[in-house]
Design a protein around this nucleic acid. Sequence first.
DNA 1: TTGTATGCGTTATCAG
DNA 2: CTGATAACGCATACAA
Lengths: 339, 339
Amino acid sequence: MKDSKPTSLDIAHLAGVSQPTVSRALRNSPLVSKETREKIQAIARELNYKVDVNASNLRSQSTKTLALLLCEDPGDSMINPFFLSMLGSITRAAAKEGYDLLVSFQQLSEDWRADYEDANKANGIIFLGYGDYTQYIDRISRLDQAGAHFITWGPVVPGQPGHFLGCDNTLGAYEATQHLIQLGRKHIAFIGDTSDDCPEFQDRYRGYLKALSEHGLKYNQQLHASANSTETMGFDATQTILERTEPFDSVFCCSDLMAIGTIQCLRENGYSVPDDIAVVGFDDIPTASHMTPPLTTVQQDTIKAGELLVENILSLINGEHIESRLLPPQLIIRKSCGS
Amino acid sequence: MKDSKPTSLDIAHLAGVSQPTVSRALRNSPLVSKETREKIQAIARELNYKVDVNASNLRSQSTKTLALLLCEDPGDSMINPFFLSMLGSITRAAAKEGYDLLVSFQQLSEDWRADYEDANKANGIIFLGYGDYTQYIDRISRLDQAGAHFITWGPVVPGQPGHFLGCDNTLGAYEATQHLIQLGRKHIAFIGDTSDDCPEFQDRYRGYLKALSEHGLKYNQQLHASANSTETMGFDATQTILERTEPFDSVFCCSDLMAIGTIQCLRENGYSVPDDIAVVGFDDIPTASHMTPPLTTVQQDTIKAGELLVENILSLINGEHIESRLLPPQLIIRKSCGS
DNA sequence: TTGTATGCGTTATCAG
DNA sequence: CTGATAACGCATACAA
């Protein structure tokens, strides 16, 4: 703001051409002769000219911006590292496509801003969260009716409109549970909220049950405690199970964060991990490999997930059809289950 | 986009008033009679009208948007949880002020986008990173010359233009080191890159040295290893020091992430933490309290930091003067140092 | 290949 | 308190 911001008209003036020509030249349009184009671009660089995005967007009716709504209320505590990892990969993927990313945290308590409002600021919306979209279903339905472009990270929830991209949670949980069984564990506790609020955890629960039944183990209600994805909830759920005095030799946690709490709780109660009790997690957050013991967990490919989310939302914006799909998870074997 | 998006003109039509009146009414201008205002707002709600931000911004020449530039190249690895925590608090603080947040990760290798470019999309820029702003000093200088509004999280770097907000790193490191000394530790290793690329770590180094000298301990070059803020770098640096076979009884790590790697390394080498070797970190990332042993560390108040960053950048935007300042850190004592 | 005319939807500036 | 009119800076359509 030294002197007032240069405009395309200023450049036109200096270059002795019309303003649209400048506009075209800056967009590298082949309709402009190489000569004038280079002249114009030189002047633009000289003046440090930048296209005014507001004017450009207003005119072209497109924003070149994606909105990322994190549907998790972290309160004052931390956001799940897994989502932050996703945030990183989505940001990079969006930048690669020339899109900006508007980030906003959807506090449950907050008013209904960021619905249509954001739909006006962005071309498309990516929803991210631990699947408690049920709380947002009204808004999402309205979005859908308004013809907004959006994609949801998570499992396909019947009855919920829109497109989905997620990890094959059932398969991941199945493989993790099977791994425990193959190591000789027979009494496998399950920690996670399997209500309708957490469709992702429900899928993981299904995989867990499937592995149990395929290997002739039976489900024990006493070894199941509900918890949302925080260390503290994992700790408390583990405590709950311990207090039921039902013996168990391993725990499947629906997220790494909960597994951290679980391991801490087990240790404080005098159990050794993995000797007394094996633990598996889900997500493969960075800390997982540096814990003591390093955590066996199910890895979700956040890089690919981010790229696909962006790719898909751009397809939607371009009016193309996309299919909801699931990404394959990968079991990462470390020491928290013994060997 | 069922039928074409409603405009203020549509509403004016329906309400039988002029279009500017609609605009005023929607902004709750007191210049509009309560009667017409409510009528207009009712219609707007009915039509689900939303102000077109592009048009609004174009006309008012202001974007109501802040840009957050994360100056850390995470490569394919994770972003430091500390910054992500900051990201969360900044997002919330910005939202509270009615500002959107444009997030972008500044990859070192990348071309020079996100300089002025973002300056056109946002009213102000917040720089976040582990202080290696030296690499960005050119761009920052240009930004400054262009009169852009920006604020940098980190220590005041002499010669670098702009405003700063940071944590009192020297004080934090001083207190942490003093804590070790008071527990009877005499040979305190230091892990962190103290080159000019990491002014934050330099300040922590100063605090460390100050505590040593005030308590009559002398600095031992053999116990200092450089590392950037990742678990792996912390691990390797610790290994380096161990191989020097210089005895030590404690480690000051410049970040929690490095402390995680340090503890893992010590354990793999058969040392017990804190019995053999005490460890302190810096940042107080969420994992710190759930590690084994829970990590003694220096807490930075990310909530307050985020609020102040936003508050300050808004002041700058409004043409007010602000002072660079430092926030007080807080030593969080856990078990990694014994007792 | 370039220029002319016009409009995107809003807010600012007047005058009434 | 309200209305007419202009303008923000760019991109589209069409003509030359």
